[in-house]
């Protein structure tokens, strides 16, 4: 009887629909306007629109999953999802572990944000950055004291409550926060250019998916849809192809 049950359970697992090409897109969901969870509880933002468009053009059936930033690469390589689309800049270190598609955002500057009116030397002060980002790497090598946080939101909160003198992050992420801070926050130093552009991260063994996505991204660059999307989400400061 036990064996019968086991056999039934196994065959139930074995059958199932034919495997459609379902591609699971992994994102952080905490980095507006790149990607965030909207009030409906769904993934939203520039990368949601971009990802859906890429999947449409490449005829892929895509679903969205969120994953903490810190473990976003390990979960990709252990196949819990098939692509990272989370504002991830292309760097040499990451490229050793995973593969990147063609870039969909050109290299864009990072900015320092601190309390308005304060005088902070960003080369010596205490600077907040998100863990495992190019900005964290930059702060660590700049001579300033680095404090790392798990989520982007916490890096800004650290500046507001005085734990850090300034935060270093993508300017596109910080700009709306500064604009809506009611004069409390301001860009306090020159922008810095670190890292390459932003691309989707894929497993190195996934050459076929990479080719499909690259075709879609190149087509979107060529017909201007990507530029329109960038302007829609990043407003005036939008980087353009």
């Amino acid at each position: 009887m036990k064996k019968l049950l086991l056999a039934a359970a196994l065959s139930a697992l074995a059958t199932g629909a034919a495997w459609a090409d379902t591609v699971r897109l992994g994102t952080e969901g905490a980095y507006p306007p790149y990607n965030f969870i909207n009030d409906k509880g769904e993934v939203d933002g520039f990368e949601r629109e971009l990802g859906d468009e890429i999947c449409k053009r490449a005829a892929l059936d895509c679903t969205w999953v969120t994953n903490e930033w810190d473990s976003i690469i390990p979960n990709l390589v252990s196949s819990n999802y098939d692509a990272i689309i989370a504002g991830m800049s292309v760097t040499a270190e990451r490229d050793e572990v995973i593969d990147f598609t063609n870039e969909y955002i050109p290299p864009s500057p990072s900015g320092y944000v601190g309390l308005a009116g304060g005088s902070v030397d960003v080369a010596k002060g205490i600077i907040a950055a998100q863990i495992n980002t190019i900005q964290a790497g930059h702060v660590a090598s700049s001579g300033a004291t680095l404090v790392e946080f798990a989520s982007p939101d916490e890096t800004v909160a650290a500046v507001k409550n005085g734990e850090a003198d300034a935060v270093l992050a993508d300017k596109d992420f910080l700009a709306p926060i500064v604009a809506e801070s009611g004069g409390m926050l301001a860009f306090i130093a020159d922008d810095v250019s670190i890292g390459g552009g932003v691309a989707l991260g894929l497993r190195e063994s996934d050459g076929e998916l990479k080719a499909k996505m690259n075709t879609a991204i190149d087509a979107m660059k060529a017909d201007g849809t990507l530029n329109t999307m960038l302007v829609k989400w990043f407003k005036d400061a939008a980087p353009q192809w």
Binding site: G16, A17, W19, A20, R24, V77, S79, E204, S205
Partner: peptide, 24 residues
């Protein structure tokens, strides 16, 4: 195991890639 990647065939995924998010 291909380098860093842990790749099993689609049919071996747990739960299956096509499964509803609920099952994941």
């Amino acid at each position: 195991y291909q380098g860093n990647d842990f790749v099993v065939c689609q049919a071996a995924k747990m739960p299956l890639g096509i499964a509803d998010q609920f099952y994941h």
